[in-house]
Each structure stands twice: as structure tokens, then as C-alpha cells.
Nucleic acid binder design. Structure first.
Lengths: 341, 341
DNA sequence: GGTTCCTCGTGAAACGGTTCATAATGTAGC
DNA sequence: GCTACATTATGAACCGTTTCACGAGGAACC
């Protein structure tokens, strides 16, 4: 009969006592079983079973110093873009038997901090962060203290911190250029706050391209900051715009979820896409091509992004920092171009 | 100038030395600052800053015993259903200043085990698991050892383990009933392996409903196990079916991602939906309504699912186990019914 | 039979915090 | 001036592992 200890979990000492050996031997059974005589080992294993002993990870780690876990902090766990990136990370990590923990900062610097500290205090090998702010001083500090840091989906402004990103300025340019090519001369950009670098960069790209086309960005571009970077945010933004009597002809959305909300709203309002309003999204998530109005979008190599970030983190804390920059591509579909098949 | 210690992180003893106080005092500054004289406190804080000291979470926890973190293990982090549930969990957890770590088992019992052990060894308050197998013996063991366990999206077969689920048998019934109502007499069910309870239950529901309608499930139902529970799995399954010369009239997909793959394939093959083939999905993810053929789906209360699970876990390890069962609802759209607006 | 090696097992010293009984100091009251 | 009592600070014990120098007991060899 398993005698259920009321509260305290069995420790290695309890096991040693039960098996009639020393704690060192139990530890050896756990970590280098080949060094202990089969008979002894079996006795210890029986005791472990009997007491349903589970290693205390804290103690183990306190002594050992490190664990094979890495943490990732993304802006929004409900955004397929980030989970696709996470998949890429996981697959790479699996090869080295590392383990991934994911947390969502929800664009909130305070939450980001909290998770960052949690990860650091628990001695993860490294963290991948999609920073919620432009300021990465706190990440530098973590890096200095010896925890690996890789910026995800965002170029690093500091040479000592690795980053894996996609050229967001270029993405903004691609979207704007496409809309200009389609004959639009005014663009509404449903963007996130500029504290998020990706948003600022995409904005910069749009401005650049408009200027290059001889348009004055001040009048040719209307930027609206969405309340949240998802379908609800997109819906609220476009609804607000329509209710104020404005009717844009071209809407560029900072991600496909926002675009989804826009398309949904336009459909219920019986506004034709792309005839009345052209819509361009960002990320090219899996469902973009299958929407009632297939969504034109800027594609990013999510998988490679994650895998490369994992690569950098696994290459060790002493490897030179690298700054990887992927290029986005434009995928034209029916939401922005009547001629797209 | 910050003198960079080559390797070892500063410990509380280093701080104490630098500030000219005892370790106990440093600990007090950290945990009960009101008990230490302002002057002393400032000296200690300066030393902390100077040495860029970070608490060692393992040591802290080793002594304290517990942390305010809970872990969640889902089947597929790239599936919007699970991330929506995670959102629900997070929001509830936030209220109590708990922290959520998410891991993806990828339907793999071994990965599930690995993460489970990781969480348990690190002393999380509790874990929420969408089990990858029908066997929950290992979860019972964890529960016995004092870590909270809540089954997510799956009823518990054991009274001592809480669960929050949606009635999957009912979901299968709803889908089957709807297709029967639409005049179909044969259903192809693209399902996951029956080792995943949800899949088995939905199958049971379909069989039940077919039998209730006087049909012989053996001939009226063709079940195909998809290679993976996502769009690629759906695409491969339906493609295999078509290539073998079969042309189903009604396809029920175990989730919306699979359905997405099916719709995509049918479209490229120029097979009309719902005229030639009716398609029903499961989960009613955000984009289901916006697809080129709006997808009929079984809706589950994702948010409530997560929030309730968090509730149960936060109610403490000694609270009586509860078994919450939500009811799914059918949302009819154009993919299964020509009359749906 | 003595020396040298090997194989197993031991026990105590870390690891870096928290906690708590105790000491040191100052203040008040009589 | 003495006792009583706060207020701060101290330092050692403890949490549960891992590691490592060391000892005991054989086997092998000359």
C-alpha cells in the first residue's frame, strides 16, 4: 500500500533511506545509472516508485546552474503569425532536445517585463522576444547578465543582441506600391502603435513609397491606430471611419487579423471589395487565400524566422551576434485587384 | 564603471558584501522593504543596481516551495481554437497575478510527458492539459503528488480530476443531424486518431445520429484519419479520396483547419461547395464566417472554457473536483447549405 | 603476498536564497 | 539609573539536489 505522505513530497533522502543507500547513490541512479550495480539500482528504483518520487527541479537547477529550456515572448498568442513562428522555433529546438515555453505579452511592456524576469530568474538558456516597446535597454541588461537574447521579428538596434527579422520598411513599401499601381492615390493605414517597431517601420515604408511616387504623405496617407491588433480592432477602426462619413478607397492593415475585421465589416455594410475599397493585409496567414474576398497580403517566412532564431540561441552565448533580415513578398489576391485571378 | 564579472552572476551574498550588510538584510530589502531603515535600504538598492543582481528563482523557490505560475499543454499551438482558450485562461489568471506558460504537445504523448515533468519539477501551482491519449494515469499521479490538474477540452473519467469540456458527442450529433437534414445519406468524416478523446467522441456522436435516422453507420459513414490535424492534413486526406476515384457528397471535418484544407482543395479541383460536396467544420474559428464559402461549423465557448479551467485551478488543490460540461452549438453557413444566407 | 587498478558506494560540501531566533541599539517610563 | 520595550540588523539553519574526494573490497599481476 502506498502510504500517502500528507504534504511534503518525497526527497532524494527519503528514497535513500527507503532503499538503504546513500543520497549520492540515488543521485547516481538518476543521472548515471551505469555506474551503479544492477541490484542496487533496482532497489533504488523500487523505492522511487514506492514513494512516487519526483525530482525537485529547483534544487536540481540550483546546483546544476542551467536548463535546456528557452522562453519566447510574443505579442499575441492568438495571432497565427506568432504561433507559426513558434512552430518554427519548436521544430528546430526539438533537434537539440530543448524545450520551449511560450508567453504572450499582449503588447504590454509590463507583462513583457514580468515574463522576462520569470524566465531569467528560472535560468532559461535564452529568450526570444518580440519587444512591445522600442526601448530594449532591459534586454541588453539580461544579455549582459548571461542569458541569451534574440529579438524576434524585429531588427536589433544594438550590435550585441542578435535579431531575426523581416524587412518591415520594405513590407510597407510593397503594400503601398501595389496600391499605387492599382491606381489609388490615398491610403488609409490601420496600424498599431509606433512603440511597436514593426508598426513604425511599415509606416515608414508606406511614407517612403508615397513620396517616391510624388505624393504628399501628409494628405495621401491617413494613419489610424487600432485599439487592438486583431479582428475586433480592425472592425472598430473601419466602423469608426465609416460612421464619420469617410469612405476610403484603399485600406492597408497592419496584419491579417485586422484585415479580417475590415473585410467582415465591409461585407455587412455592403461595400464592395475591391471595387469600392481595396484591402491589403500583412502576414499572409493560412486562411488569407480562402477568404470570401481572397486577401492580398505581405508574406513573411514565419517558419524560417522561428528556426533561425532558435539556431542563434542554440549557437551559445559566446557566439557573435547576428542580424538576420529576411525579405517579405507581396501576394496579390482579389481584395485589392480586380484582375487577380 | 560597471565591472563586468566574467561569468558568475551576482548572488545575494555579493550584494550584502558590497553594501556592507548581512544577507538577511538584503533579503529583507527584497521582500519586506518596510522593515529596513531607509538609509540601509538605499545602500542595498545601490549595490543591487551596481552588481545588476537578479534573484535566483530556483534558490528562491527551493526554499519557498511554490510559485504563482500555471502551465498549459495544448495539442497544437498553431490551432486558433487552443490559442483562444489560452486567451481565456490568461485573462482569468491575470486577475490573481498568476502567470501562464504554454507548451504544445503536438499530439505526441512523449512530448506531453516531457512538458508535464518539466512543469511538475519546477513546482507550478497546476497544469491544464489537453491530453494526447485516453490514458490519464500519469495525470492522476501528478495530482496525487500535489500539483493541481485540470483536463482541458475533455471530460474527466476520474472523479478526482477536474475537467472543463464541451460535449463532443453532442457536437458530432449536431454535425451529422445537420447533414442528414440537408438530405445527405452518406458522410465522410475526416477525423483525428481515436486516442484523442475528442475525436472518438465526435465519431460516437455521428454514429449515434446516423443510427437514430435509421441508417447503417457501417455504410453511411466513412471515417478517414488525417495525417495531421491542420490544413495540410485535410488537404492530403481529401486529395487521397478524390484520387481514388471517390467523390463524397458530405464531408465533416474534425476541426476548421482541416476544413480549410478541404475547401482549398475542392476549390482548386473545381468542385462546387455545397452543391457537389457539403463541408462542415468544428470550432467555429474567427475566420470561418469569412471564407469564400462561409464554413458551417460547431461552435465551442473557447473563452469560457479557458476561464473556467483557470477558475478551478485557482480554487486551490483542496477544492473538490468539478466536471464542467459546456454545450456546443451548430452554426450553419454556406458550405453545407445552399439556403444559408 | 604485496602492489596496483577498478568498481561501487559514501558523505559532506556546495548552489543561492528565505526565515527565524537572537543580539544590538535606542527610547520611554518610573 | 534601571527595567521594559521597540526597532533594526545579524547569521546560521534549511530547502533538495549534484558533485567529488575518498574508502572499501576485489581482481589481476608479478
Amino acid at each position: 500500500m502506498t502510504q500517502q505522505a500528507a504534504h511534503r513530497r518525497a526527497s532524494i533522502a527519503d528514497v535513500a533511506r527507503a532503499a538503504g543507500v546513500s543520497v549520492g547513490t540515488v543521485s547516481n541512479v538518476l543521472n548515471r545509472p551505469e555506474r551503479v550495480l544492477p541490484g542496487t539500482r533496482e532497489r533504488v528504483e523500487a523505492a522511487i516508485e514506492e514513494l512516487s518520487f519526483v525530482r525537485n527541479g529547483s534544487a536540481r537547477q540550483l546546483r546544476a546552474g542551467t536548463i535546456t529550456t528557452i522562453g519566447a515572448i510574443v505579442l499575441d498568442i492568438a495571432n497565427p503569425f506568432f504561433t507559426d513562428v513558434a512552430r518554427g522555433i519548436e521544430e528546430r529546438l526539438d533537434r537539440d532536445d530543448f524545450t520551449l515555453m511560450v508567453a504572450s505579452s499582449d503588447d504590454d511592456p509590463e507583462r513583457e517585463q514580468r515574463y522576462l524576469r520569470l524566465f531569467e530568474e528560472h535560468g532559461v538558456q535564452g529568450v526570444m522576444v518580440v519587444p512591445a516597446t522600442d526601448d530594449i535597454e532591459h534586454l541588453l541588461a539580461i544579455r549582459r547578465r548571461g542569458t541569451g537574447v534574440v529579438l524576434l521579428d524585429r531588427p536589433s538596434s544594438d550590435p550585441s543582441i542578435s535579431s531575426v527579422a523581416v524587412d518591415d520598411v520594405r513590407g510597407g513599401e510593397l503594400a503601398a506600391r501595389h496600391l499605387l499601381d492599382e491606381g489609388h492615390t490615398r491610403i488609409v493605414f490601420l496600424n498599431g502603435p509606433h512603440t511597436i517597431r514593426q508598426c513604425a517601420d511599415r509606416h515608414e515604408g508606406v511614407v517612403k513609397e508615397l513620396a517616391a511616387a510624388g505624393l504628399d504623405p501628409a494628405s495621401a496617407l491617413q494613419e489610424i491606430t487600432v485599439s487592438s491588433l486583431n479582428a475586433e480592432g480592425g472592425e472598430a477602426a473601419i466602423r469608426g471611419l465609416l460612421e464619420s462619413g469617410e469612405r476610403p478607397t484603399a485600406v492597408f492593415c497592419v496584419n491579417d487579423l485586422v484585415a479580417l475585421g475590415v473585410l467582415r465589416t465591409l461585407r455587412t455594410e455592403n461595400i464592395a471589395v475591391p471595387t469600392d475599397v481595396a484591402v491589403v493585409g500583412y502576414d499572409d496567414v493560412a486562411f488569407a487565400a480562402e477568404l470570401s474576398t481572397p486577401l492580398t497580403s505581405i508574406r513573411q517566412p514565419t517558419h524560417e524566422l522561428g528556426a533561425r532564431a532558435a539556431d542563434l540561441l542554440l549557437s551559445g552565448p559566446d557566439a557573435a551576434a547576428e542580424h538576420v533580415m529576411f525579405q517579405p513578398t507581396l501576394v496579390v489576391r482579389g481584395s485589392s485587384s480586380a484582375s487577380a485571378r
